[in-house]
């Protein structure tokens, strides 16, 4: 199998995630888009791991999976906090601090 088919799939997912992060207003949706990006990284890592026949990439992917979970947890907590104080999970309403 071509290495690039994995890598380009991954690049596509990554960029889709980038689009979602930039264009979505709802905090939860933004976090979902972040997950897309992190998954793209994992596909890269596992594909490379198979390509070079080294387990390091898979270990790396495991770390990424774990930490992504932690990040999402914290992120949702912060979005929840904002929802509670502003009564909306929309990120474009959060613009008190600027300049």
């Amino acid at each position: 199998m071509a290495l690039n088919q994995f890598l380009i799939l991954s690049a596509f997912l990554f960029c889709t995630g980038v689009y979602g992060v930039l264009a979505r207003r709802n905090g939860v949706l933004v976090l979902m888009s972040v997950e897309l990006m992190l998954n793209a990284v994992n596909i890269n890592l596992v594909a490379f791991s198979a390509f070079v026949r080294d387990v390091g990439g898979q270990i790396f992917a495991l770390f990424v999976i774990t930490i992504a979970a932690a990040e999402v947890g914290v992120g949702l907590a912060i979005v929840l906090l904002i929802y509670r104080n502003l009564d909306s999970p929309d990120l474009d309403r959060v613009d008190q601090l600027k300049g």
Binding site: I78, V79, L81, L86, L91, V94
Partner: peptide, 13 residues
């Protein structure tokens, strides 16, 4: 403090 919330989400994201 909504400012603190805002600080957190910006830093986080």
């Amino acid at each position: 403090d909504t400012k603190s919330n805002e600080a957190a989400i910006k830093y986080y994201l």
